[in-house]
């Protein structure tokens, strides 16, 4: 009887621990809640040259428009390319404005595979908008 009681106690403990993990998995840290521009209507597009992307030097163009479709000038645009695998150093670049709402930079895709390109735009009014784009880079 004691053994059964002890066993039941063990499993209650286990269920509590799993419940804690489950609760945690539904949470997201404040720092991970990013403004993707949906609320302000800011839209970003990403283009790469060459397209499709291949390993080596490339030019990346980011276009930013506001809710009315007008180009957004004067933003500071940072680009960070991460591979899908852990342990890979990201590719970092700051894009400069090359025409109204058009920002360009050169960078190097260092390995073939799946990349996640994060574009962070700090607008002239101080608002920060961040969007992620999936990109497949061939050998």
């Amino acid at each position: 009887m004691t053994s059964k009681k002890q066993l039941r106690r063990s499993f209650i403990l286990l269920i509590l621990a799993l419940g804690l993990a489950l609760t945690l998995s539904a949470c997201q840290r404040a720092s991970q809640q990013i403004d993707t521009g949906a609320s302000s209507g800011i839209a970003m597009t990403l283009a790469v040259n060459p397209d499709p992307a291949t390993v080596g030097q490339a030019q990346v163009t980011v276009t930013i428009n506001d809710a009315s479709g007008q180009p957004v000038s004067g933003a500071a645009v940072a680009i960070k390319g991460d591979m899908s695998h852990a342990g890979m150093m990201p590719v970092l670049a700051d894009a400069t404005e090359d025409g109204a709402g058009v920002y360009r930079t050169d960078l190097e895709w260092t390995m073939a595979g799946d990349w996640i390109v994060t574009v962070t735009a700090t607008l002239a009014d101080g608002q920060t908008v961040e969007q992620q784009f999936d990109l497949s880079v061939a050998q």
Binding site: L24, S25, C27, Q28, R29, Q32, H85, A86, G87, M88
Partner: peptide, 21 residues
Amino acid sequence: IYDGLTGPKLAPQNLATVAAW
């Protein structure tokens, strides 16, 4: 576990994936 469940979703930016793999 904590960072994996609540932190960055990109593997190269998360302690769970970098430390494990």
